[in-house]
Amino acid sequence: MSDLLRRLRQGGWRLTAQRRVVAEVLDGDHIHLTAHEVHARAVERLPGTSRATVYSILGELVSRGELLEVSTSDRAKRYDPNAHRPHHHLVCVRCGAMRDVPPARGLPAEPPERERFGYTVLDVELTYRGLCPHCTA
């Protein structure tokens, strides 16, 4: 579960009304919203919130390491507040629904030395693709 609001408060981030509402929209389990979706939900809570303000806040949160930007194929970027817990993603190839899944056991954390070509591995991203229950039905 995301603890975005708690992290922001503890980190001393000045929570203006617009920042607070964006953080509230993004707080919760399995949240992977596009910027457009964040803006639409923010406006419901705080009318008059501009699209530019939402994009700016999303950029700040990504820069601070409080949100992950998740890209899947040709779909719009999504914002994931589960930035401090290792996890992978499960994505529906039909509707784009996305869920967090815990790291798989038994998978190599990084390629063997001979297959790294001198690179130092800093992170591993794994995306499972399939059909969600709604699209399978």
Rank of each mutant, 00 (worst) to 15 (best):
A35F: 05
E37C: 04
E37H: 06
A40H: 14
A40T: 11
A40E: 14
R41W: 09
R41Y: 03
R41L: 09
A42R: 02
R45M: 03
P47R: 03
P47A: 06
G48Q: 00
G48C: 07
G48W: 09
T49E: 03
S50N: 06
R51C: 07
A52M: 11
A52K: 15
T53E: 09
T53F: 07
T53W: 07
V54Q: 00
V54F: 06
V54N: 06
Y55V: 12
Y55M: 12
S56L: 11
S56N: 12
I57S: 06
L58P: 09
G59T: 08
G59W: 02
E60C: 05
L61K: 07
V62T: 07
G65Q: 00
G65N: 08
E66Q: 12
E66T: 04
L67R: 03
L68Y: 07
E69S: 14
E69M: 11
V70I: 10
V70Y: 14
S71I: 10
T72W: 15
D74W: 12
D74V: 12
R75I: 02
R75V: 08
A76C: 09
A76Q: 12
K77S: 14
Y79C: 05
D80F: 10
D80C: 13
P81E: 02
R85E: 15
R85C: 13
R85S: 15
P86L: 10
H87F: 08
H88F: 15
H88A: 12
V91C: 04
C92K: 03
C92Y: 11
